[in-house]
Every structure is written in structure tokens, then in C-alpha cells.
Amino acid sequence: MTEYKLVVVGAGGVGKSALTIQLIQNHFVDEYDPTIEDSYRKQVVIDGETCLLDILDTAGQEEYSAMRDQYMRTGEGFLCVFAINNTKSFEDIHHYREQIKRVKDSEDVPMVLVGNKCDLPSRTVDTKQAQDLARSYGIPFIETSAKTRQGVDDAFYTLVREIRKHKEKMSKDGKKKKKKSKTKCVIM
């Protein structure tokens, strides 16, 4: 069974824990209790493949930012979460993405942009803004509501699919490099 290491990042209060708990335990946590770091595991079937999701729910508070490099190193894919009623959390996505790329030393890291709290009427981040940002990053965008469960499975499952595509691409690139290195030079 394939294991996928997913990391949920975003500013404090955007609903990272609520999304994760909704996926794992099928219930909505409405009281806000700032996370330092929590880890969850769940076995699911995605596109006919049974897999184990190892999900790291991270601290959004700035005082825990020193811990970010460590979990970013171990993560295979990242859910970059903002709240649709919090423009600052949307603007912060850029910083999370840049930090992930720096730590992973790669421009090509599996990510999904997630606009959470889409059940709320007080939207300050337009869907088109988020779609445009995701398009500019070359990553999928999904709106979710941890409260109603809308888009929750889709967000995590899409990230797994992005990781699969990335692994497939990397193995193809690896095979191309191996083929090239088999060419021999004969000096007579």
C-alpha cells in the first residue's frame, strides 16, 4: 500500500485542523484551538488504489514558523489553505509557496490551493482571484467548507493525484537520464 505524506499549511484560523478532522473523523470542530502540530493517518481508496494518507496539520501562528522547514522537508505534497473571508490569509499563500519551493529546492512541488469556509456569506476573496492565482502557479484550486464537508475529500484526493503525477514524471525523467548515460565512448 502506497503511503502519501501530505502537509496542510496556511495562516492561523483558516480551518486547516477543521478540514483535516472532517476528512479523518467526519465531524466539524467549530471551536478554535490553535494547533502546534498534529499528525493523522487514514486509509482510503483513490482511483481504485488503496493508500495510506499521513497528514500533518501544522501551526499557522507566526511564533511556530521555525518548525516549518522541518515538516516541509518531509512532506510530499501540500494543501495551501486560505479562508475566503480573510484576504490576508490569501496573500500569505505566496509566502508559504515560496518557502516550500526553497526548502524542497524545487520549482515543481505537488500543491493544491484550497479556499476554505465557502459556506460563509462574508467572502472577501473572489473565486476568480483564487483561480487566477492557482493557474499562475500551475496547481489545482478547490473551494471547501469544513463545516458542510463540501470539497473536503476532493481537496485531499486531488493532492494525492498531483503527487502521483509528480512521481510518474520524475521516474520518466530518471529513465531518460539513465538511457543517456548508457551511451559509451570508444577510443581507438
Rank of each mutant, 00 (worst) to 15 (best):
C80A: 03
K88V: 10
E98Q: 05
A66W: 05
I84C: 15
M111V: 06
R97A: 14
L120M: 12
F78Q: 01
G115A: 10
F90E: 09
K88A: 12
M67S: 07
V125Q: 11
V103A: 14
P121E: 12
Y64P: 13
R68T: 06
E98A: 04
Q70Y: 14
K117H: 15
M72H: 06
V114Q: 00
I100R: 01
V81N: 04
S65C: 05
S65G: 09
Y64H: 14
M111Q: 00
N116F: 01
P110R: 02
S65D: 11
L113Q: 01
A66H: 11
F90W: 09
R123M: 11
G115I: 12
P110I: 02
Y64C: 10
E91R: 05
V112W: 01
V114I: 13
R97Y: 14
Y71C: 14
E63N: 04
D119Q: 05
R73D: 11
D108F: 09
C80G: 02
G115H: 04
K88E: 13
G115C: 10
M67P: 04
D126L: 06
S122G: 13
D119S: 10
G77N: 01
Q99H: 09
C118L: 07
C118I: 10
N116T: 15
V109M: 05
Q99K: 07
F78M: 06
S122Y: 07
T74S: 12
G115D: 02
I100Y: 03
M67C: 05
H95K: 14
V103Y: 15
G77Y: 02
V112D: 00
M67G: 05
Y64M: 09
K101S: 09
F78S: 01
Y64E: 10
N86V: 02
T124Y: 09
L79P: 02
G75I: 08
E107D: 12
G77K: 00
R68S: 05
L79N: 00
C118M: 10
V81S: 06
S122W: 06
V114D: 00
R68E: 03
L113G: 01
N86W: 00
N86D: 15
I84D: 15
K117F: 14
V125Y: 10
F82N: 03
L120E: 14
N116I: 11
F78C: 04
F82R: 01
D119H: 07
M72Q: 05
V81R: 00
M67Y: 06
F82T: 12
Y64W: 10
K117A: 13
R97H: 09
K88C: 11
R97F: 15
K88I: 12
D108T: 06
G75R: 03
K88T: 11
E76F: 13
D108H: 09
V112M: 06
M111E: 00
K104A: 14
I93V: 09
P121W: 06
F90Y: 07
G115F: 14
I84H: 15
V103T: 08
T124N: 11
K101P: 02
V103C: 13
T74L: 09
Q70I: 07
K104T: 14
G77H: 01
M67F: 06
I100Q: 00
E107K: 06
G75K: 02
M72T: 09
G75W: 04
R97V: 15
N86S: 09
P121H: 10
A66S: 11
K104R: 14
A83V: 01
C80T: 02
D119R: 04
P121F: 10
M111P: 00
Y64K: 10
V103Q: 05
K104Y: 09
R102Q: 08
K117Q: 13
M72N: 06
S106F: 10
R73H: 11
K104W: 09
A66Y: 08
V112T: 00
T87A: 10
R102F: 05
D69M: 03
L120P: 13
V81T: 07
R123T: 13
G115Q: 03
S122P: 08
R68F: 03
T74R: 08
S65A: 07
V125E: 12
Y96L: 15
R123P: 09
I100F: 05
K117L: 15
E63C: 03
E107P: 06
Q99I: 14
I93S: 02
L113R: 01
V125T: 11
M72R: 02
